[in-house]
C-alpha cells in the first residue's frame, strides 16, 4: 500500500519551487518517485509534505556547452540514454543509466534523484565521480553554488545540501579524447538489480604513463566514494603489472564495505580489486 496523507505541492516554475523549498524545509522533493514510492510502501518514511519537481522544464534539459555537458536534475535515465551529446561524450553514463532498474524505472528515475537519494549503491554516482561532475545547488536565499560531487556526501545518506536547497543540474566535464573510460556494475542480476559493487573509471595516459586517474565506487562504503590511494598509486607511473598490483593493493585502504542482505564485505573487497585489475590490464592492450 503506497499511501501517504501528506500534501503534494506542485510549483509552477523553478522560482516557485525554491520558495516552497524554503517555506517547507522538512518536505521531501519528489521527482520520478522511484525511491520514495518504495520507502512509502515499506513505511520507511513519513514526510509532512512533498514538493513535486517532475513538471518543471527548467530542471529537465540536457545541454552540451563547450567543455561540459549540463544535465538538468530531473533528466530521466531514458533521456540520458537517448541524448546524442551524452552518447558521444559520456558513454559510461549511458551504460550506467541502462543498468538502472528496467525500462519503466528508467522512464521515471532522474539523475538528480539518484544523487540526492544518496544511496551508496546508486548506479550513476561512480561514473559521475570519475568524470569530476559538479552539482549546481540552488536556493531562493543564496542563489546558485557549485559543489563537486566528490564533496557532496558527508556520511551515510547525508549530504551538504541545505534544507532550502535543491539540485538544479549536474555539470559534467567532457573527457579528453585520450581519456579511457569505464563502467562496471556487479549486480544481483541483469535487470531490476541493486549493485554489489560499481566502478566508474577514467584514466588519462601519456604514452604508457598515467597522468590522471579517477576511480569512483559504489556499494563499497557508506557513500559513493573515490579511491585516492589507488588513484595515487597509478598517477605518474607506467601502467605496468606492478603498478596495477600496487593500485589494487592500495584500494584496500580506500574502501570500507559491509556485509548486507545483498552480499558480503569480503566479496566486495575481492571483486573491487579484481574488476579494477581487469580493467587496467585491458588498457595495457
Amino acid at each position: 500500500m503506497m499511501t501517504s496523507a501528506a500534501p503534494v505541492h506542485t510549483p509552477a516554475d523553478l522560482a516557485d519551487a525554491l520558495a516552497l523549498r524554503a517555506a517547507h524545509p522538512a518536505a521531501w522533493l519528489l521527482a520520478g518517485g522511484t525511491d520514495i514510492m518504495v520507502y512509502l510502501e515499506a513505511h520507511a518514511i513519513d514526510p509532512p509534505a512533498f514538493i513535486d519537481l517532475w513538471g518543471l522544464p527548467e530542471l529537465r534539459g540536457v545541454d552540451s556547452r563547450g567543455d561540459h555537458i549540463r544535465v538538468g536534475a530531473c533528466a530521466d535515465y531514458t533521456t540520458l540514454i537517448d541524448d546524442p551529446a551524452v552518447r558521444a561524450h559520456l558513454p559510461p553514463l549511458v551504460e550506467a543509466a541502462r543498468t538502472v532498474g528496467a525500462r519503466q524505472i528508467q522512464n521515471r528515475g532522474t539523475i538528480g534523484g539518484n544523487i540526492a537519494n544518496a544511496s551508496p549503491a546508486g548506479d550513476t554516482m561512480p561514473v559521475l565521480l570519475a568524470l569530476d561532475a559538479v552539482l549546481e545547488l540552488q536556493s531562493a536565499a543564496r542563489g546558485l553554488r557549485a559543489v563537486p560531487l566528490a564533496d557532496f556526501y558527508t556520511g551515510y545518506k547525508r549530504t551538504v545540501m541545505a534544507p532550502d536547497e535543491l539540485i538544479a543540474a549536474v555539470r559534467i566535464p567532457k573527457p579528453a579524447k585520450a581519456d579511457r573510460l569505464h563502467f562496471r556494475k556487479v549486480g544481483t542480476r541483469l535487470a531490476q538489480s541493486i549493485s554489489k559493487v560499481v566502478l566508474g573509471g577514467r584514466l588519462r595516459l601519456d604514452g604508457d604513463t598515467v597522468t590522471e586517474a579517477r576511480l569512483g565506487w559504489g556499494s563499497v562504503a557508506a557513500t559513493p566514494v573515490r579511491s585516492p590511494k589507488a588513484e595515487a598509486a597509478l598517477v605518474g607511473q607506467a601502467l605496468s603489472p606492478s603498478t596495477i598490483e600496487a593500485a589494487v593493493a592500495a584500494l584496500d585502504g580506500d574502501i570500507t564495505p559491509i556485509d548486507d542482505v545483498r552480499s558480503t564485505a569480503g566479496y566486495r573487497v575481492r571483486v573491487a580489486g579484481r574488476i579494477l585489475r581487469s580493467w587496467l590490464e585491458s588498457l595495457r592492450g
Binding site: 518504495v38 515499506a42 528496467a102 544481483t188 542480476r189 541483469l190 535487470a191 531490476q192 538489480s193 541493486i194 542482505v261 545483498r262
Partner: peptide, 16 residues
C-alpha cells in the same frame, strides 16, 4: 527472511 522483497530475493528476469 531478511531479503523479503522482490528487490533482494533474486529471481531471474527476462534479461537473465
Amino acid at each position: 527472511m531478511r531479503n523479503n522483497r522482490l528487490t533482494n530475493y533474486i529471481i531471474p528476469t527476462a534479461l537473465d
